[in-house]
Design a binder for these strands. Structure first.
Lengths: 90, 90
DNA sequence: ACGGTATGTGACCGTTCGTGCACAATGTCA
DNA sequence: TGACATTGTGCACGAACGGTCACATACCGT
């Protein structure tokens, strides 16, 4: 599953947890976080700490794979529009 | 690149940024975060918000892929040892 | 319909985030 | 070696974290 937003992440977490037949409380105990925090992740809370997320994924038997978006790109390449836009109001 | 810890993530971010020929400041502007924050990520800070990390990876042209650790598993499967250990002191 | 479990949500609290700034340390290139 | 850019680190501040407790709602098997 490609993760480009918190929606993708939350959906994958919930689906995997249910596939494993775990409650939020059980998963929370395994990952050493609170049940409410798991609920937050599954509803797409974007401000959760990435370290805890990695722990959660490990408890679910999920591994993050980081791949380049554009396989053809070898030469250094910059999104100039994004860069200029971000720099405009500085 | 498989991401199982913050070390993996930070190393990948730094490598990719340098491949693109970007400074931390440029990358920070593109992802709309502070330069200091980027420095923290690249040094393995585990408490950074996952939403900002996703923005950063997008700016780097990187996509997260979430795959199951054990491809053979179809039936619900639980790491009972981990679960019991976590529940023990409750 | 009923009972128990599971999940969502809000408030409170102590802690820590992310930003911005300043300065030191490091790297780079002529 | 000497500018200059880049990166690391500490501080103060407002904002928000994650844990916990409480309660409401939703779900499920019988």
């Amino acid at each position: 599953m490609k993760i480009t937003s918190m929606r993708d992440l939350s959906a994958t977490v919930r689906g995997r947890r249910q596939d494993l037949g775990l409650s939020q409380a059980e998963l929370a105990a395994m990952a050493k976080v609170s049940r409410e925090w798991v609920s937050g992740v599954e509803s797409g809370k974007a401000t959760v700490e990435v370290g805890l997320v990695i722990r959660l994924l490990a408890a679910l038997g999920l591994v993050l794979d980081l791949v380049t978006d554009d396989p053809a790109t070898v030469e250094p390449r910059v999104n100039l529009d994004a860069l200029l836009g971000a720099l405009r109001d500085r």
